[in-house]
Design a protein around this nucleic acid. Structure first.
Lengths: 210, 210
DNA sequence: CGAACAATACCGCAAAAGGGTTAGCCGTGG
DNA sequence: CCACGGCTAACCCTTTTGCGGTATTGTTCG
C-alpha cells in the first residue's frame, strides 16, 4: 500500500488551548501531520528552521511579539515558506500587513474546521485561496488614505495617553510637529479627536492596545 | 462492564475553530461527552435548556453579546448550573464580573489541555478550583477603587470618542456633571487624561472596545 | 528637472479638557 | 437621626486640543 507523504504543519498561537485544539483538528486527518507548535515569534522561527514544515498556521496576536514579524522572519529564512494566518483580527490593516509580509492567505478563527483543512491542502498544493471577504477588505483599504510610519508612531503614543508635548519629547521633535502629525491622522481617519482616532485605528488594526 | 455516565459538556465560544478544537480536546476523553456548541449568548441559553449539561464552558467575548450576561441567564434558569469561563481576557474586572455572575471558576485560554480537563472534572464533582492567579487578581481588585455604574457608562461613551457635551446630551445630564464623573474616573483609575483612562479601563476589563 | 510627498517647525484663535471647590438631593445603613 | 456615598450642578482658572494657515528641507519618482 502506497502512502503519500503527509502535509507537515506547524501551529503558532499564544494560547495553549487553541494551539492544542487546532493541532487536534489537523491531526485527525490522515494526510496531515502536526510537526510542531509554538507560542511566540522566536519559538516559531526556531521550530520552523528545525522542522521545515510544508505549511505554517500563524496567529497574529502572539503575546507581546507580532505575528507579522514572525511571518517576515520565516519568509526571510525561506522565501518559499507557506504561511496561513489564522486569527480573530479582521481589520483591513491587519490583513494587509499580513499579506504584505508574505502570508499565503488569511483565515479568521470563525471558520469551519473543514474549510480550514481545505485551505491547508490548497496552500500546500501551491494555491493562494483568498476568500471574497479578504479580497473585499483589501479593496476597501486601497481606497482609504494610508498613514505614514511617523503618523502611526505618533498615533501609538497618543493611544498610550501621552500628550502632544510628551510625544514630542519621546520622538525628539517639536510639539508643533506632533500637532501637524495628529492633524493629518485625524483627516486620514476622518475623526475629530484623539480618543476617536484611537478607537478607529484599533478597529482597523492600524494599532493594537495591549 | 459498568460504565459511569459521562460528564455532559456544553461549549460556548464565538469562533468556530476554537469551539471545535475545544470539543475535540474534551471528546477525546472517555468520561466526557460534548452535548452542544453555541456561538452566542442566546444560542447558549437555548442549548443549555435543551441539553441540561453538567458543565458549561463559556467564553466571555461572544461577538456582540457578553458572556457574563449569558452566565447570568443560565444561572437564572438553573441556579445550580456549573459554568467554567474559558477566555483570553485576564483583566481583574472581567474575572470579578464573571465570578459575580455565578461562574464556578475562571480559566484563561493559555492553559494546558490536561489542566482544563482536570478543572472540568473537579467542577463536575462540585468543587470550585480557583487558581492562585485568579485569587490573587481578585484580591488586587478588592484593593482598588470601584467605578460606579454611572462612571462606567460615561467612560464607555468617552471611549467611543464622544465629547463631554455629547456625553451629557446622551445621558440627559449637564456637561458639568459629566465633567465631575470624568474627574472621578480619572482619580479612581489614576490617570490624567481620557485616552489613558480608556487604555487602562480596557486593560482592566472595565470596558471593551469592539 | 519639476511634482509630489513626508517630515520638520511656527503662529493664532476658539473650543475643549483638566483640576479644584462648593453644594443640594436622595437613598442606604449604622 | 445622621453619616456616607452617589448623582446632580455650577464656578473659576490653567493647560491642552483642534483647526486654519504658511514655510523649509529632503527624497522619490516620472
Amino acid at each position: 500500500m502506497i502512502v503519500t507523504a503527509p502535509i507537515r504543519v506547524l501551529c503558532v498561537d499564544d494560547h495553549r488551548l487553541v494551539r492544542e485544539g487546532l493541532a487536534l483538528i489537523l491531526a485527525r486527518e490522515g494526510d496531515i501531520e502536526v510537526v510542531g507548535a509554538a507560542a511566540t515569534g522566536e519559538e516559531a522561527l526556531e521550530l520552523f528552521c528545525r522542522t521545515r514544515p510544508d505549511v505554517t498556521l500563524m496567529d497574529l496576536q502572539l503575546g507581546t511579539t507580532s505575528g507579522v514579524d514572525a511571518i517576515r522572519a520565516i519568509r526571510r529564512e525561506d522565501p518559499g515558506a507557506r504561511v496561513i494566518v489564522v486569527t480573530m483580527y479582521h481589520g483591513d490593516e491587519d490583513i494587509y500587513r499580513a499579506m504584505q509580509a508574505g502570508a499565503a492567505t488569511y483565515v479568521v478563527k470563525d471558520t469551519l474546521a473543514d474549510d480550514l483543512l481545505r485551505v491547508v491542502r490548497e496552500v500546500y498544493s501551491g494555491l493562494r485561496p483568498v476568500s471574497d471577504d479578504v479580497r473585499e477588505t483589501l479593496r476597501q483599504r486601497a481606497l482609504q488614505p494610508t498613514l505614514t510610519s511617523r503618523e502611526i508612531e505618533v498615533l501609538g503614543l497618543i493611544a498610550q495617553g501621552l500628550r502632544n508635548r510628551e510625544v514630542g519629547v519621546t520622538l525628539r521633535i517639536s510639539e508643533e510637529t506632533v500637532r501637524v502629525h495628529v492633524k493629518n491622522v485625524f483627516h486620514k481617519l476622518d475623526v475629530t479627536d484623539r480618543t476617536e482616532a484611537v478607537r478607529v485605528a484599533v478597529r482597523r488594526g492600524i494599532i493594537h492596545l495591549s
